[in-house]
Design a protein around this nucleic acid. Structure first.
Lengths: 197, 197
DNA sequence: TCCAATCTAGCACAGCCGTGTCAAGATAAC
DNA sequence: GTTATCTTGACACGGCTGTGCTAGATTGGA
């Protein structure tokens, strides 16, 4: 009897609008009104799908994390171990528009995550996922026997993980200062050193 | 004739209060009223020293950067090159309360820096300073002849710089996840590899 | 003691914000 | 066409924001 609306689709669209606002205007402008306007809805209509502001913020971040994870899971890896590890790491570096946007969204949440318990947990989760990505890149090299002998995988994971986030941070804050080529060079150099050249 | 107030001192105190608010409550709570309350002043009184909100934010960041730079300039380096380079790098890692607070302040500004032209420039400046720090740590090793042959100093600078910021970022977002010892281990390992051990 | 320069507190204003409520509108089965 | 149900827009409320302004408090020198 009622008007039928695809709720999931609607919520997805709104989350996408939220991401756009976050990227364009920063976390401080990520308000119900701004997102509603970006999504072409009235604040009241948006409230129907996300009763509280936090719900919106968290849903948008949740969807973002899931999207990223799905994209990585769908990757098609080359047979060469070093190339495969490089490809894996490059998925989480801002090398193109899509991934730069990802970083902008992700790091935009970072500041608020320190003061929002729920966001903090999600941030933990994603940090774990990234650490796991770093570790599996190294494991890929290790299993192939490419990795140098005598390396401490724990330290190397921390190091690679920090290197990834550091590069991402630089590209986030000052994209004009660091090119995709530079990012690639550093990562390839780093992985190359682990392999022992 | 008038009541005499040490303006510089007052501005310094207010900036310190601003840093406390930023660390404790995040950039979103860094308002004129909150800082005034933290400094034990009325908003009107604060406005006498910082007519505009931006003035306050920028002055606080400016002072923070100057303080950090002064602290590094005042360092007393050991003679051993590797130790000296390590010490230098450790100055910008959140290894103790003081430096953790520095990181919290600094990264707290990062998000806003993307949308505030003045903060953006100051952020650029500090990024340059950090890159310079990374480079001079490497240079210290290089001059002492400790550095491995055949290294590209540009790439190594980018790499060390990113590693530093990545570690700092991790310690910032999830301090409970990474200990000072871990940070130290990674940095020492990294520098050790450059030396060739 | 009194003056005058300086500092301070407080209010007012307009503009955002999140949130609650509610009446009106749209839709599809009957 | 009627009606029940879902959807939407709009308003109000209180709170926080930056900012402008003003009346009063404070204090050193005459």
């Amino acid at each position: 009897m009622p008007k039928l609306v695809d709720h999931d689709r609607r919520r997805s669209d709104i989350a996408a609008a939220a991401r756009r606002v976050l990227r364009r205007d920063g976390i401080e402008r990520l308000s119900v009104r701004n997102v509603a306007h970006e999504a072409g809805l009235s604040p009241g209509a948006l409230r129907h799908y996300f009763p509280r502001h936090d719900d919106l913020v968290r849903f948008a971040l949740r969807q973002f994390l899931d999207d990223l994870q799905a994209r990585i899971a769908a990757l098609d890896f080359p047979t060469d171990d070093l190339e495969a590890a490089t490809l894996l790491v490059e998925q989480v570096l801002p090398l193109d528009k899509q991934r730069r946007e990802d970083m902008e969204v992700w790091l935009g949440y970072t500041e608020r995550a320190r003061f929002d318990p729920v966001l903090h947990d999600m941030s933990l989760e994603s940090q774990d996922a990234l650490a796991l990505l770093a570790r599996s890149a190294l494991a890929r090299l290790d299993e192939g026997g490419a990795l140098r002998d005598g390396l401490d995988l724990d330290i190397e994971t921390d190091r690679l993980h920090a290197l990834i986030d550091g590069l991402a941070l630089h590209a986030y804050v000052h994209p004009e200062r660091i090119s995709g080529d530079q990012l690639r060079r550093v990562i390839r150099h780093h992985l190359g050193e682990l392999v022992g050249d």
